[in-house]
Design a protein around this nucleic acid. Structure first.
Lengths: 201, 201, 201, 201
DNA sequence: AATGAATGAGTCTTCATTCAT
DNA sequence: AATGAATGAAGACTCATTCAT
């Protein structure tokens, strides 16, 4: 009994330290491109040693992936919370997602990175796909609620694609402020929502 | 008279060597992630010295950008050629673009890179935007031909976003062959085309 | 208690390794111009990796500066040791300094480098000036002991200048052996000493 | 007859182009450390091609040396012109030389470079020594006029050394303006002049 | 004589990862 | 479990000089 408790405590401690590292990384991504963040920086920012980082992650990529997966989870949770009161309309879903992307550019950069070039271990790949599927489920649910009759899964993919694509087109617009970009990408999100809604009905 | 000819010849030679370098790079991108291609590799592959690379480009990024801009131009040209006979339908346009992306994954990776994190010089940024606009023009034209009445520019952006987004979602699908991915992304392209067509009419 | 000791030991080890690097550099300077010594050479000569060099110095220049500052300190210490028995006469001081310069040509080259073109960080600049002042103090003391009444600081500067200048004029004399140069510069040192002595009294 | 004239004209043209290159280099040295000036820069600034530079100088070092020797000659000429009216006092000589050094820091940097590390060809070395001797002659003459009886050559060397040394001590004084440095080095020059005068009499 | 593109050896520096303590 | 010094492969880029035209 006592043993189990200690074990649990240890696990809790381990988890919390892991979270500290995670958030240290996240903090840094807010101020610079994640590809240029170094282990040393993360260690210093987290107040731990470099070696400790490697006690929690086999390599940097896995840490980055963990940050990404956590964001994906966060999005899913937030969507679920939204749904508790009233299921969101397609437009609300799109707005929410684009707002999240604007607030977390790193999330989008990482998605690009992992979905395209990322050399992921089989295990990591598995986890990634799982989280993505959960996110896709929420999109499909909303699409179905909108009245979509056929190909709901494919259409969810198309919607997901469309929303992600918005950032690629507008995240970097020369001479525009962050606010301009936010406003513009939201407008595009509404258009996408409108098109998918019309065509669903 | 002779002088002018010599000058021209020099320019031609310069252009052709530039192209050799460009294609050497392109070749390498076919077998490995462009971010991991080195100057040395490109030089060796092009049959020139490292120094020569820097005689044509101030740095690696500019070379990469040139490769990207050339691809963008190529797409635009191909679209224009298609249009000469019969203006393409929206579905044809989408199919064409996704096919191109499947054949040139590097193009998509570069787009991600430059549109998101790429530290471009003002000059480079300018060129990039210009080429993107030209591509957007073609999309808008097709959308208008489909019967779209309002917000044609914004809708073109939305379409462009949606198509680009397809790759992010499916370029890397665990355990799927290139052919599977091609088939799948094309199916998504058709769905997107369908949705945009329906909503335009 | 034990902890403190371990800490101390670590510091000692760190200092000693730093010294190893320092002396490896110094060794190399004896056989070739310090501006042409590479990190690789120093690393190999010190028996450490290149990375280790950068663990101790942020860049090559700082290492070079450290070598220079150590020499300056060495001179100051040697002068202090000389003074313990009997304060040196002006002539002895001049002889000693010129002898040191002959034995350590790199010291003089570095002085030229850092005092003229060296792009030093503010911090480095500070350290440099501090050490130079300490050296100047010794010169001033000896001048005062010689009977100088006025402008002792300025005169110390003038003396320092004059001695340094000797090397610029004679370190490289075509067709002369090291011994010839040593003899010649020492003769000039004596003349300088004589002039400053006469004029002080 | 005609042939000779053409030959002469060619020589004149050659000389004038050489001078253009020389002054282009000199111009650049005014704005940046001579060690960081590249052949390309000089060529561009002179309005000639890189190849042309190498038609006039076997390598960069020789060009730098030429710049240096020209400066030395200039100093000698200026001293001779001063002497035409009234032979300068020792103080005037010192003031003049230090003023020149302040106005032409590159001259001093080059002197350091060539006298210390410069890998000069035998021929170049010869030329260098010759010019230096001529400069030394002027110093000796003035010293003799001041009343110096013995060791005039050695004392001239000592004087030369002392003056040169002034710059090494003060060319880089942290937080001082160019004007401050000029004033300070001139003050030191006067002290040197005073000391050498007193001791000569 | 003038040109300037081509050359490529050689430089400093970075940084993920390891492993002895 | 935590530490952080050591490692060293690898990269982009420079620039004096050459030489075919």
């Amino acid at each position: 009994m006592v043993k189990i408790k200690i074990k649990d405590l240890k696990q809790i401690e381990r988890d919390s330290r892991r979270k500290i590292i995670l958030h240290a990384a996240l903090d840094l991504f807010a101020i610079k491109d994640f590809r240029s963040v170094t282990v040393r920086e993360i260690a210093r920012h987290a107040g731990v040693s470099i070696g400790t980082i490697y006690n929690y992650y086999p390599n940097l990529m896995e840490l980055f992936l963990d940050v990404f997966l956590n964001s994906t989870e966060e999005i899913t949770h937030m969507l679920d919370n939204m749904s508790k009161k009233t299921p969101p309309t397609l437009e609300q879903l799109c707005e929410f997602y684009i707002t999240y992307l604007n607030d977390n550019m790193t999330f989008y950069q990482m998605m690009s990175h992992f979905m395209l070039g990322g050399e992921l271990s089989h295990d990591a790949s598995q986890k990634l796909d799982e989280k993505m599927k959960e996110l896709m489920n929420r999109m499909e649910t909303t699409l179905l609620a909108t009245g979509l009759q056929t190909d709901s899964r494919l259409t969810a993919h198309a919607l997901f694609s469309a929303l992600n694509g918005i950032m690629i087109s507008y995240a970097r617009y020369p001479g525009k402020s962050d606010d301009d970009i936010r406003r513009h990408t939201l407008r595009l999100a509404k258009i996408i929502a409108g098109i998918f809604t019309t065509s669903s009905q």
